[in-house]
């Protein structure tokens, strides 16, 4: 086998502070482990539950109902571009749920897999990456609800819907950056375990999930876009509501820049502490 010969020719040097130049190659080599861990999380997720995968339908659906009633009926906030409030809320809820579950699961994942980390070598980044798959599958289930909602309200998407996958990837990346930083921090300081649920709870209200970002006064708009979720949720609504809710471009650019910085920062701090994970866990 040529692959094993190539590997056997490979010489590994282990020393203090030695940066592993082959890290990204290693990450690629361990892709099977990524799939297996992801498969494990998916297989185990709804074991010993009564309604199983129906939870993936129920949770976002009920949240949507509550938000529509609270924000749309009681607070009487306006929707975007005349779209039904429920559809607008759900278009915001989709990326938010994806973001928050990736953030929560990935941040806790390294400590949660402490048994593996202290007994076997593999690029540790495999762990937070694998947790994304579970969230992604729940997301796909929610898409079915979205389709049903759009049918019900007779909302017809435009060509923009084809760009939805791009925004899905952006959502994952937006969650991954902070999640990796938090995962590394939780290994060192368990205090951060208590920070994550709080951030998610607050994030739901500071992001335009239950309401439209157009409600934010013009002069604050750019500042508001410092939250990368603002740009992403805008993007989702643009895709789903068929371009009637235009993306505020300078704000979107800012959101993406913040996303990029967070991703870079998260990867960097994860890579830096990763080598001592087994000592700390």
């Amino acid at each position: 086998m040529s692959t094993s010969q190539a590997e056997s020719a490979r010489r590994l040097v282990l020393e203090a502070g030695g940066t592993d130049r082959q890290y990204w190659l290693d990450l690629w080599r361990y892709r099977e482990l990524f799939f297996i861990l992801a498969w494990r999380d998916v297989a185990v997720r709804y074991k010993q539950t009564v309604i199983g995968i129906a939870w993936a339908f129920l949770r976002p659906f009920l949240t949507m109902v509550v938000f529509t009633v609270v924000f749309g009926r009681i607070a009487k906030l306006p929707s975007e571009a005349g779209a039904p409030y429920a559809v607008m809320v759900f278009a915001g809820l989709l990326p938010w749920t994806l973001f928050s579950s990736v953030l929560g699961d990935a941040a806790a994942s390294v400590v949660g897999n402490g048994q593996l980390v202290s007994k076997v070598y593999f690029p540790r980044m495999v762990i937070p990456l694998a947790t994304m798959v579970v969230a992604l599958i729940d997301f796909l289930v929610s898409l079915v609800i979205l389709a049903a909602l759009m049918l019900w309200y007779a909302v017809i998407p435009g060509w923009q819907i084809l760009l939805l996958p791009v925004f899905v990837v952006l959502t994952l990346l937006a969650a991954l950056g902070p999640a990796m930083w938090l995962a590394a921090m939780i290994v060192k300081f368990r205090d951060f375990r208590f920070v994550v649920p709080f951030v998610i709870q607050v994030g739901l209200y500071v992001s335009p999930v239950g309401f439209s970002a157009t409600l934010v006064p013009e002069e604050w708009k750019l500042l508001y876009n410092l939250n990368p979720l603002v740009g992403i949720i805008d993007g989702f609504r643009w895709c789903i509501l068929g371009g009637d809710s235009p993306i505020y471009l300078p704000g979107f650019a800012l959101s993406m820049a913040v996303l990029g910085v967070l991703l870079w920062w998260g990867t960097r701090s994860f890579r830096r502490t990763e080598r001592s994970f087994a000592d700390l866990i």
Binding site: S4, E7, S8, A9, R10, R11, L12, V13, L14, E15, A16, G17, G18, V117, S118, K119, V120, Y121, R275, S276, A278, D279
Partner: peptide
């Protein structure tokens, strides 16, 4: 040797899978 922890000093060279 199995790369789970990093040495504080010194080095190891390993050849092979």
């Amino acid at each position: 040797l199995s790369r789970i922890v990093e040495p504080t000093e010194g080095r190891v060279e390993i050849t092979g899978r």
